[in-house]
Design a protein around this nucleic acid. Structure first.
Lengths: 220, 220
DNA sequence: TAGATTGTTAATCGATTAACAATC
DNA sequence: TAGATTGTTAATCGATTAACAATC
């Protein structure tokens, strides 16, 4: 079997992409501390990775550093924001206002990443019409018009597992949603056309924590 | 530089461990469907991975299959539960009853993985004493005694970033907590003695979603 | 200039996949 | 038994690290 044809331009591996958010966080922290420049060596020490990896990762996207000096913290932060698409100001809706939906609505994480939550949706008539985190909870019947009128690109899926697939399909097919931040615990990969899907399984990390704990117990 | 000495018994790579929860979920689903046996080939097709990988992964822990037959779904599920330490019935507390803490308290994910949430804690006097998800919210002053009396091993850290480190240190040093499911957005690795820490950064996956969306937009 | 640190190539390491003998 | 599928070794592939010339 031959290798898969790499995407058009310069191919950036999934491993690198998954590390970008961490760089973003550490740079943000450095800015907060008033640090103006940093070498790959110093950043590596903070992040507990190798300086080689930092230089390799960043050079997938361009030469952001300067020999003998290091990296300008602010400009590197802005480059990474741009690479991550955070400057595109994607619009999101939250679908399902149960406990998870509520914890996410009004959470500052969206704003920090340039994503704006513009609509909240649920099917429960008892909460429809009420306000949460400064936004009105709307009925699902309004979702199609809302997405089209507000150029929504991301749906935060916080519906029960049993509804995950059908709601996602509706959002993809009828509402033009192409990105799913999926908390429904239904794995949607390859099920929703060419949509981009991030399946979040909170329980998975709890299980690896249990694994490590039980290994620790066995050692003794 | 030489390679790090592998842990005592048979070394299992981090990559394998991180896949175990996903096997756990698919097997659970198969049980729910009433499937009694499955071959690595069929499971691989469902999970969108290779059958080789499944066989390699499982054989880190033992020969659970049978040639010509495949794997017994129920017994494989139980083996994986055991490997993951889910049968040890770890006790957990939730520290910080803000939006995230509330979304986690009473969430069925704990029960599904054999972890029991036995205590909720906060510093806000307005909510201390009230009930949430069937449990009383207690003041932080009671946390030390509570952990010791109830053999708590896991703390779900849902406090603000600014408090993450100090609360974790207190729990580790004074309360005997060795496992942290850390939602505080403060990276705690290497900061809390030899504690086992799962840092959860929800925003990271939102960022990779944005990255993929913006790449998609550029292609066209 | 001299020292520092990048960008980048080459070497190493680890993880995934393929292949097949063993065996149910 | 014959067919199916595992467990496991070997081959491939990809990701990380080391090293150093380029250069600020």
């Amino acid at each position: 079997m031959n290798s898969i044809t790499p995407p058009p331009s310069k191919y950036v591996s999934k491993a690198v992409i998954k590390r970008l958010p961490r760089y973003f966080r550490y740079l943000r922290e450095l800015i907060r501390n008033g640090t103006l420049r940093i070498s790959s060596k110093d950043l590596a020490a903070k992040m507990n990775i190798t300086s080689s990896q930092i230089r390799q990762d960043l050079n997938c996207f361009g030469g952001f550093g300067q020999q003998g000096y290091g990296y300008n913290v602010m400009s590197l932060y802005m480059e990474i924001s741009k690479i991550l698409g955070l400057e595109e100001n994607f619009k999101a809706i939250i679908v399902g206002m149960g406990n998870i939906g509520k914890a996410l609505a009004g959470n500052p994480l969206f704003e920090k990443r340039g994503v704006s939550v513009s609509g909240l949706f649920d099917i429960n008539p008892e909460i429809i019409g009420s306000e949460y985190a400064g936004l009105k909870i709307r009925p699902m019947t309004e979702i199609e018009d809302f997405c089209k009128q507000n150029s929504v690109s991301i749906a935060v899926l916080a519906v029960p597992k049993s509804e995950g697939e059908s709601v996602a399909k509706f959002l993809y097919n009828e509402c033009g949603i192409k990105g799913f931040w999926n908390f429904s615990n239904m794995e949607l990969s390859n099920k929703i056309g060419d949509a981009i899907i991030e399946n979040i399984h909170l329980g998975d990390t709890l299980m690896t924590l249990c694994y490590e704990l039980s290994q620790r117990n066995k050692e003794k």
